[in-house]
Design a protein around this nucleic acid. Structure first.
Lengths: 214, 214
DNA sequence: TTTTGTGAATTGCTTCACAGCA
DNA sequence: TGCTGTGAAGCAATTCACAAAA
């Protein structure tokens, strides 16, 4: 039903990479870039780049290429990162606290405005991060999500707790979840993204173990 | 040239998910599982599960399904995680230290046995993690990689430094790199895996911004 | 019956190659 | 000439559907 139906998932994922590269180009003061050069920087073919961008509109200029500032604005608009998103983080363990320190989220317009933890011993303490957030109780989830206009949730809890907390997040009104727990969430009624840190190491070990004579 | 040529990349990625689910099943004491049930747990079709596993051998038993312990052994062998891998982490910033605390790596047989940082003020200090590693100088990279039999590197440095450090890792003898820096590494002669934390949030915001009427 | 393994059909994605524009 | 946008072709991955095994 979406206006972006029929667009390959891989193309949408690459959109993020184009944006990252475009932001680097702005830093270098580049005004325009061709599909060939943009592809080269990301190890993609020029045709791939043109087709991906053409799914969303006509952004290029024949004979010139793409204007960097213009395309940046367009890709941000398509990805929805032309405005800020308020985010709740659940799980104030090691990973959770590290993510709070990570500047990359805010730089892209994702503001972590609240932290929650199930452990009542931690609730009320201040997390040692740049913006000094106080850990909130899971009981305040729904109210906080509403009051702070939180739309996304980051799940940094142990695997056993993940499904339950994910349900609570949706119940509280969150519209999308980034899941760091090593479990596949089931029956979610909102968009999901999953990051499993060990899966990527396994892919490397596969390539090394299977790729040569062992 | 590999014995696993012609196998779809997506199938290999799912292998990690099968293994994760199998390990959960062992914890529950399950003896066998059908392709249908395994697929259900991971939101895949039964045909997908069977075809993926069949790329690597005949592990199933008609009328029974797959024996959990048997299949676990096989998948570990295929992924190369039936033995341990020594890993070096470069970048002792917030993200790097958080990854050192993360128990998931060791649980899967990936042992982070050395930490490096370019900042000589940090070199020599002990990182506050369970296994108390001392931060090493980048000058000792090659020697340490050799002495500790390190085969994989985790890159947790700023974007600007990533390409340079990646080159140094390969130069030092590392055979695969897991890259957390938000850049696409170029001209690498070893297997790579990339984790960009903001990319996943952008995918969520795309789905929310584009999926409904805005 | 239940459930696998697999050729065949289908769907989806990428690359090719070229018309059209600057 | 240089470069985009895009149908057509080619390739890759998934799903179907059924023979064979327990």
């Amino acid at each position: 039903m979406s206006k972006f139906d029929g667009i390959p998932g891989p193309a949408v994922r690459r959109l993020s990479l184009y944006l990252r590269q475009l932001e680097a180009l702005i830093g270098q003061g580049r005004r325009t870039i061709s599909s060939r050069e943009l592809g080269e920087a990301l190890s993609l073919t020029d045709a791939q780049v043109r087709k991906d961008l053409a799914y969303f509109g006509q952004f290029g200029h024949p004979g010139i290429g793409y204007r960097v500032d213009e395309l940046t604005v367009q890709v941000r608009r398509i990805l929805g990162t032309d405005r800020d998103w308020n985010v709740a983080l659940v799980g104030a363990g090691n990973l959770g606290r590290a993510l709070l320190c990570y500047r990359g989220f805010a730089k892209k317009g994702f503001n972590v405005v609240a932290v929650f933890d199930r452990d009542e011993h931690i609730v009320g303490t201040t997390v040692d991060t740049p913006d000094k957030l106080v850990v909130r109780s899971m009981n305040d989830l729904r109210e906080t999500v509403h009051d702070l206009n939180i739309r996304l949730g980051i799940l940094a809890v142990p695997a056993e707790a993940a499904q339950g907390v994910a349900n609570e997040l949706v119940e509280a009104g969150v519209q999308g979840i980034l899941n760091f727990a090593p479990v596949t969430l089931k029956n979610m009624s909102c968009p999901l993204a999953a990051v499993d840190l060990t899966v990527h190491l396994e892919q490397l070990s596969f390539q090394l173990a299977g790729g040569n004579g062992d």
